[in-house]
Amino acid sequence: MSLAMFLQHGLNGLTLGSLYALIAIGYTMVYGILRLINFAHSEIFMLGAYFVLWGTTLFFLPWYVAMVVAVVVTAGVGILVDRVAYRPLRDAPRISALISAIGVSFFLQNLTIVAFGAIPREVYRPLWLETPMLMGEVRVLPLTIFVPTLSFLLMLGLVWVVYRTKAGLGMRAISKDIETSYIMGVSVNRIISLTFGIGSALAAASGIMWALRYPQLQPVMGSIPGFKAFIAAVFGGIGSIPGAVVGGVILGFTEIMAVAFFPDLAGYRDAFAFVLLIAILLIKPTGLMGAKLEDKV
């Protein structure tokens, strides 16, 4: 394989990896605080993309405005899901919240079918993102620069919130010990809402950028990326934000590279994630960057 080809595939891998990483962050943040696998997260990803479709076709918003609006609205949906489906179960056994999460996932999928129909919909995307540029030998899709860059900026923003703001301090505290945070004066429910909001906003951003790459929207489009991102979060060490990012990027990279080097394996593409998962569970069950998390009762 030529270096030019390798770079091209590398950018593709980085693009896919950033998209996984953005979803994985939401899984890991919610798990870190509530020890809950938010199965509805895949649907949050999907809704982000659909809200752009809504914004551009129903309200005739320019695509970039529609994107921002969609991110905000999806964050709101994420917060609402927590309020309605998880918060009432905070003191219940954890399995109840998990079942509730599965229920929400089905509900949102079906709601989308009712609202938008089950037929795949095409979403608008600016042509320049898809027009290859020639950089020396390398044919670069602007999209494969745009997506990782924007993802990187979003992650920087996240790091700033988590490590530089008071709310971030609250998040880091409640992820370790909710009760003690509470008596220190941390408004736990507000911080949990914020966590869902941020995680959902990032998943929405991922869904929207996903749609720029694969512009067919379907109500089930979140399932596979969502599942892979979850695996990426476990691979990186669930509960760890850097772990989610690294896990997502490694997964995206492996997927693209494996297919590039071994085209015969293209049909097994979706299985790589599981190979990675099994490998890490055998070698380091807490994931690459995962610390041991005590179970919360």
Partner: peptide
């Protein structure tokens, strides 16, 4: 950060 957390409500 632990000390700042003590002052969280302020």
């Amino acid at each position: 950060d632990n000390l700042r957390l003590g002052a969280y409500a302020r």
